[in-house]
């Protein structure tokens, strides 16, 4: 069995240890004997539609985000729209998450049009507003109510439309907008979230959930073998403790 991963903008959107997410996906598949191919898709390149089972996009600094937004619409839209239709997985973190929505309005009021793969919109309330920064814990119905742990750092406030469901409910932290206790968004097999840390190494349940969906989109029903997750679970619970401590 094989898994084909497409890493979007590895040199542009890589702000918060994003390559850790790639490592977790690739290693947890390889540790189960699954062949993994990772293709990097940069500015100016269009991935062939149908060529990948899982697409990953990280977050970037403001100027990089502007470059990525234009390129996403012009060069990546076809492959990603096709991916959603055939049930391939798209995972986007932080800035990448914002670009999968309808639009991102910056602190200066500048509007970046997104791909609209997730029914969400993001607005930055202005340069004087507080960034939403800190350790975060979320409870996710997509993982049978298990917790997700990570770190968030964003100025934009994201609101969900009727066609998106949250990835989870905030236990501690801010989440999408610091108000409605929602975190992230899911629609079909498209996942967006503000959690980095990075997200996947410390949340093996989510990693395996995404791997299962991605493999199933091409190989049919599969069951992943279990792994020795002692270090993963130790890091997960340490992050849980850290998120609720005051120092």
């Amino acid at each position: 069995m094989d898994l084909r991963i497409c890493h979007l903008y590895p040199d542009l959107l890589n702000l918060y240890g994003d390559r850790g997410n790639l490592m977790a996906l690739a290693h947890r598949a390889q540790w189960r004997g699954i062949d993994v191919h990772v293709e990097e898709s940069r500015l100016g390149v269009s991935p062939a539609p149908g060529a990948h089972d899982l697409y990953f996009m990280g977050g970037g600094e403001d100027r990089q985000q502007v470059l990525a937004a234009a390129d996403l619409r012009e060069r990546k839209r076809e492959a990603l729209t096709d991916a959603v239709a055939r049930g391939a997985v798209v995972l986007a973190v932080c800035g990448g998450y914002q670009l999968l929505g309808h639009y991102y309005r910056s602190a200066e009021g500048e509007e970046l049009i997104g791909l609209g793969l997730l029914d969400v919109t993001t607005e930055h309330p202005g340069p004087q507003s507080k960034r939403l920064v800190g350790n975060i814990v979320v409870r996710s119905p997509w993982l049978g109510g298990r917790t997700l742990v990570g770190f968030e750092n964003h100025g934009g406030r994201t609101r969900l439309g009727p066609n998106a469901r949250p990835l989870g409910t905030v236990v501690t932290g801010f989440g999408n907008n610091g108000e409605d206790r929602t975190e992230g968004a899911v629609s079909r097999n498209v996942y967006g979230t503000y959690l980095h840390g990075p997200l996947l190494p410390k949340n093996p349940a989510l990693t395996d959930h995404l791997l299962t969906l991605a493999l199933r989109s091409r190989h049919g029903p599969i069951a992943l073998a279990s792994l020795d997750d002692r270090l993963e679970l130790a890091a997960h619970s340490a992050a849980l403790v850290r998120a609720t401590s005051r120092t």
Partner: peptide
Amino acid sequence: DISWLWDVDFEMLAGHVRSLVVSGIRAD
């Protein structure tokens, strides 16, 4: 935020360290 640990090339330690002790608040 300790996400930066994932941008460090610890790969160069693999197979080259006899003993590695890990400590601190974020040892795990």
